[in-house]
């Protein structure tokens, strides 16, 4: 089974040379740490920066330079700042190559819910609805089940949706799956996890064809 870092490491392998990438808050943020350093990638943050770098050294932090998680950051050579309207032109206009975000639930048809638990948590969708409605290459980073062991990969989402039929790939602590028109297609198993474990943890329709390889990280 993978921990959050393991999920981030596996997703990092999906990041290709020349990609502009938008990372959501949580596990997705960790992905930046594990991208191969022999490829050129630029990270976009929807509050208005392309070419994000690591956190600043102590004492160098600037209140005017933050990421979408409101954390102080730095920029790399080639970086640019822009306003929110242009930022979402990059997103809706499909100029961003890859979007990685977290989810509370995903359905077998690719619906995603990650912004609201009625009566409990209402923080807002931020840029998530714009991202999932437009991006063609969306990878979801999530735990396969909740704390009670119930599947978060469902036939139908129970929480309010963020977007419909938009998720293409999911990396969980147990598996890598692709969303196809027929359901979740199992692509890889996490180290030490059997196909049976994944079947047990998946409520939505799971497609298993041939031998499922163990993922390499």
């Amino acid at each position: 089974m993978l921990d959050k870092t393991g999920i981030a490491k596996r997703i990092a392998k999906e990041v290709k040379d020349g990609y502009y990438v938008n990372l959501g808050i949580g596990i997705p943020t960790l992905v930046a740490n594990y991208v191969r350093n022999d490829i050129e990638v630029e990270f976009q943050s929807e509050n208005g920066v392309l070419g994000m770098g690591p956190f600043p050294f102590e004492g160098d932090e600037d209140a005017d330079i933050i990421n979408a998680g409101k954390q102080t950051i730095t920029t790399l050579p080639g970086a640019s700042f822009f306003d929110s309207s242009m930022s979402f032109s990059m997103i809706r206009g499909k100029h961003v190559d890859l979007t990685i975000l977290g989810a509370m639930e995903v359905s077998e048809s690719g619906d995603i819910a990650n912004w609201k638990i009625p009566g409990k948590m209402v923080k807002g969708m931020g840029g998530a609805m714009d991202l999932v409605a437009s991006a063609e290459n969306i990878i979801v980073a999530m735990m396969h089940t909740n704390r009670e062991g119930e599947s978060k990969l469902l036939k139908k989402c129970s929480l309010p949706l963020t977007g419909v039929a938009c998720v293409k790939k999911i990396v969980t602590n147990l598996a890598v799956l692709e969303v196809t028109k027929d359901g979740f297609k199992l692509v890889e198993r996490a180290p030490g996890i059997s196909v049976e474990d994944i079947i047990k943890a998946t409520e939505g329709k799971l497609i298993i064809e041939g031998d499922i390889p163990e993922m390499s990280i």
């Binding site: 600043p56 932090e61 209140a63 954390q71 102080t72 950051i73």
Partner: peptide, 12 residues
């Protein structure tokens, strides 16, 4: 005041 919401830094 320009308050920082999440002060994230790395050590030199």
């Amino acid at each position: 005041e320009k308050r920082i919401e999440q002060r994230t830094v790395r050590k030199k």
